[in-house]
Design a protein around this nucleic acid. Structure first.
Lengths: 211, 211
DNA sequence: AAAAAACTTGACTGAATGGTCAAAATGTAG
DNA sequence: CTACATTTTGACCATTCAGTCAAGTTTTTT
């Protein structure tokens, strides 16, 4: 389990980490309103007032967990390298995001839930930080297109398509598993999924020399 | 507003419809736990006990609304025609789903929320009805591929990709609008989005005669 | 136009839950 | 080892909210 600390004492560092790990699990499963402080406290192995000693309000826990997840989610996007080979960079990014969906579905779900309900806690972040970053990467994609290294596609919608598809496997996991043939949901299922969608996606954006 | 009725008296038909319309709005915005019966009753313009006269428990309202939405969501999928042109059929389906995302984002969000939280109310439906339907359509796509009318792609993941991408525009609307350049989120925004993703998707699955 | 059936609601109730508080327990610094 | 700061918790409080109930109002039936 990932932990995060940054504050004062030794005990505070430990306990904040424990609380945030527990909170991620609970919030991502039941949503903000659907989760109770008692639930988180129990999962964290401490009393409710003790938990409230570290995070005075339920919302404080939620916002902190959310901020932590946001970083996981953005790092691979930042890593898209303008100087790399376009197809290879987008392949790497997609694979990375699929890995995250497999490894940390809770983060993805927490985030999805927040957006789904209108992003009350992070709307500002979306409009400033995220927008800035997306604009930047859209610019990179546009450049690649103008260099003939990518088919002429809308960069923003391409980005959305990658986000939507990769996160689908974390957020809609229950549905995916309910629908997919039994034998395909084992072991390297996420790798297979990544291959399949890359097969479609990359052929969809490869420069079109024919016709 | 869409209404549904099927029960006894005239008044019951009317009021159940009003309640379900109100409930869809409330549930899709705040989720099941986040919504209160009072909220729904107020939006429906009646007292809480009156509402409970029609639907004895909160869950009854929720399940009914969910069942209704499920149909909207499946109809265009059923309509994919095995005898049509594959590219054209999948184009039509994708456009149809994008239209639904634009017109009835609440339905999409209600559904997304349900799945996100583990589909407590419709897991059985997913494993039986939905699975059956998806298997059938996957079979159609496989046939198309074997006839050389489509590139060899995994039919299940292709379906997921279309679902994920189209629903993204309803479910993640806040994020999409926060990130997209101001001038592109007006008027025929959803049409533009549909064009963009079809541009990528259809080229990704068109039979590959070159190389 | 009665009588019966269907509908509506104000006033409750009980359980769940976010948050407080004061006192006890534990850890830490000198 | 002692004084001080930090951490921990049982008991509590106030609010919210799903659901009840009994008494009234309206609609339908005859």
């Amino acid at each position: 389990m990932a932990s995060s600390n940054n504050k004062r004492t030794r005990i505070q560092g430990i306990n904040r980490g424990i609380i945030l790990d527990a909170a991620l699990e609970v919030f991502s499963t039941y949503g903000f309103r659907g989760s109770t402080i008692d639930q988180i406290a129990e999962k964290a192995g401490m009393s409710k007032p003790n938990l409230l000693y570290y995070f005075p309000r339920k919302e404080d826990i939620y916002v902190t967990v959310l901020e932590n997840t946001l970083e996981d989610w953005l790092t691979p996007f930042r890593d898209i390298d303008p100087d790399g080979d376009p197809i290879e960079e987008l392949r790497k990014y997609t694979v990375h995001k699929m890995k995250l969906s497999a490894l940390r579905p809770e983060s993805s779900r927490l985030f999805a839930n927040e957006i789904l309900h209108g992003a009350p806690a992070i709307q500002e972040f979306l409009k400033t930080n995220l927008k800035r970053l997306v604009d930047e990467k859209a610019g990179v994609i546009k450049l690649w297109i103008s260099q003939g290294k990518l088919a002429p596609v809308d960069p923003y919608h391409l980005i959305f398509m990658i986000w939507a598809t990769t996160q689908h496997y974390a957020d809609f996991d229950v549905q995916v598993r309910a629908v997919l043939p039994e034998e395909t949901t084992n072991g390297d299922f996420f790798d297979d999924a990544a291959d399949s969608i890359l097969n479609i996606l990359l052929n969809g954006i490869r420069p079109r020399h024919n016709v």
